[in-house]
Computed example of a mutant assay.
Amino acid sequence: MAGEIPQAQPPPAVPEPEPGPVPHPYLLLWRWRRNPLRRSSDRLAAWMSLGLVLAVLVAAPAAMFGVGDSAYRHYRSTAEDEARGRDQRPAVLTHDAPRHPEPGSEEAKKARYAAPVRFTGPDGVSRTGTTEVEPGLPTGSTVLVWVDDEGRITEPPLTAEQIRSRTMGWAILAFLGVVLTGLTAHAATGQVLHRRNLAQWDAAWANTAPRWSRHP
């Protein structure tokens, strides 16, 4: 029928792009294969790369465990010293603690506010200081504070979780430090060899150019 609107047709299928060629394993190891284009610097670069990879594979775990063990001993000794030189004492709030904007919320349960307190030091002398307390505590409330041997409010001794966390942090930093050092050494040696190749090409061209530019 004239004037009839044809039905919509689906768009033509777009052919999927063909995957690119996958490098042959031998192409990735061209520096190790004998060929007329391989230079001595290429072979040197291959050996240096292999040496750096092996060195990093050996040194990185060793550094991680060595530094981690030293850090663990250090923090464990620190925690023991802190436990011997610090103790908990009762303290009384001398001013109302600030109230949280959302009382009873999960955030309010975790929030802590600085408030002035009065406590008795190891020498028996009454002292004042500031410590973190729960929101909304009224004046006269009793809280526990950690006090050092000089009567100053301080942090509690390191916990086992804090010791593990700090030890793991230093171990990871040591591992990454060795890896970054290996990458830096690889880049530096590659740059040196590249400049050496450029110098050799310049010298070879200086000998070849006169013969190419000589007129018959």
Rank of each mutant, 00 (worst) to 15 (best):
L27V: 08
E102P: 00
P12F: 06
L44N: 02
R89T: 15
A45F: 05
E18P: 00
F119N: 08
G68I: 02
A62S: 14
V67W: 01
D81C: 00
H215A: 07
S105P: 02
M168A: 12
F175W: 14
V22G: 01
E132C: 00
T189I: 15
P21T: 05
P135H: 03
R166S: 07
K109D: 07
R73F: 00
L193Y: 05
S126A: 14
T159G: 15
R99L: 06
H194M: 12
R84S: 14
L137V: 09
P216G: 09
V192M: 12
P61S: 03
A83H: 05
E4A: 13
Y72K: 12
P61R: 06
I163P: 09
A203E: 13
S70D: 06
P135C: 03
A91D: 12
V67A: 12
R76L: 07
V53I: 15
E106C: 00
T167D: 02
A188K: 01
L173V: 11
D69Y: 04
W170R: 15
R118C: 05
H95Y: 03
S141N: 07
Y26K: 06
A206P: 01
D81Y: 07
A2T: 13
R118G: 10
E155R: 14
A46Y: 05
Y113K: 06
Q9L: 11
T167H: 01
P122M: 10
A62V: 06
H194D: 14
F65S: 13
P122W: 04
L173I: 11
